[in-house]
Design a binder for these strands. Sequence first.
RNA 1: GGAGGGAUGACAGAGCGGCCGAAUGUACCGGUCUUGAAAACCGGCGUGGGCUUGCCCACCGUGGGUUCAAAUCCCACUCCCUCCGCCA
Length: 366
Amino acid sequence: MIDLAQLRREPDEIKAALARRGVSSSTMDEILTLDVEHRRLLQESERLRAEVKELSRQVGEARRDHDDARAETLTIRSRQLGTEERQASERSERVGATLRAALLQIPNVPAPDVPDGRDDQDNVELRRWWVGIDEGAPFPEFEAHQRVPHWEIGRELGILDLEAGARMAGSMFPLYRGAGARLLRALGAFALDAHLDAYEEIRPPSFALTETMTSTGHLPKSQDDMYSIPRDDLWAIPTAEVPLTSMHRGEILDEAALPIRMTAQTACFRREAGAAGRDTRGVDRWLEVSSVSWFRDYQARRANVRYRRADGTTALVHTVNGSALAWARIWAALVETYRQADGSVALPDVLAPYLGGATRLTAKAS
RNA sequence: GGAGGGAUGACAGAGCGGCCGAAUGUACCGGUCUUGAAAACCGGCGUGGGCUUGCCCACCGUGGGUUCAAAUCCCACUCCCUCCGCCA
């Protein structure tokens, strides 16, 4: 969530920045108007409430003094004000809820140095890397045997069974078997182990409450892309980021404990980006196998995660999220890229310890 | 699934209709004392919001309700603990 106080202070700056993400200036004006109205109503209801409290205090006094007539007069007056107060706070509450709902829809303010762009065509390439680049090897061209899609390789080698997955869970859920299943396990273990020097490994629940999803910014924005279990008010997590970010929700952390580093491997349930189903039959999709997001205090404001500074004040933390390996995509990229002319698949050496020493996938082995 | 007990500030733990945002202790911060430290003593010590910056408002698991007035009474829910049942 963006900082409402900052929006009040620098409306033009925030508007200009958000315009780059397609948020219209009039949308922001509506929020500012709601904010003014909300504060007006809030003051009105708080003024009334203060008066009711004061009268109630005097009623107590009058009762102690056995001045029943005075107590009765004050009670009647307070009762009237109480009715007004209730109406005023309802109005304030209503506008406040509208304001909050509008704010939840507003995306994070982009950093000044982030380039504008509508889609990945506009991405700026900073660096290009490939195996052997240091030795002066040319950018590798794919051979014919590397142009076989992974679902065909998967069938050839008996390591991926999309039909079986579809039979039990629909086409969005792949089923890996044999060496293919073990390769996934190896990828996960490899990625987790690679971070154990600095990160605490977490095994979180696969589901999160609506409240939790909202605090990480996935709701209401990405509602349509997620799997839900309405009966239990649960959502299947789209990334480990959801449970990890939520671990300290509502807490005030000790500054000395920062930064807190955690890592986890989870299933990532997403409607549009199925791991290996029909929807991903575009190779382009795999070229972002890993990503890192820096939210500044956007998530922390929603999740109310703060820390205490040395001077005793509190401040929102920043959250950073990075995917080590999008393992389903990596799996597909590996079997396609390292497919050999004979149809077998060579495996990276770093995975061998996790594969019982195996360095190759063959039809026979699976 | 059933029965009972509980949820209050960083922690422990009082309060069970009327200056209670909350006693007390511990922890923490500052000071006195001390060569220094400890002890002792004194003072401070929750979070957020609003505005006329000194005041006001909210928060005692969550949400409703009763009342002039709710941490305190009533209802629902959530979570934790104990016992019984179930356990593909």
